[in-house]
């Protein structure tokens, strides 16, 4: 299944690995922060309803 990458296998693979790693990290961090802020906001809203 692996294509023949010839002499440049290391370069091509590292380029893909590094880029995909960065993209996954970006998406992961965005989603994590989104979830965290959402939970925090819900908590704040709940507290506000409890004590108007």
């Amino acid at each position: 299944m692996m294509p023949e990458l010839g002499d440049y296998a290391a370069e091509v693979l590292s380029a893909y690995a590094a880029s995909l790693l960065l993209l996954v990290a970006l998406v992961g961090l965005s989603l994590r922060r989104s979830r965290k802020v959402r939970a925090q906001l819900d908590a704040v809203e709940a507290r506000r309803k409890d004590a108007p």
Partner: peptide, 20 residues
Amino acid sequence: GLVLIRTTTEIRARRMRALE
């Protein structure tokens, strides 16, 4: 997609700060 997600996050963070 990322801009939408992150903007939503920023809006919530801002609202949270305002509420606090």
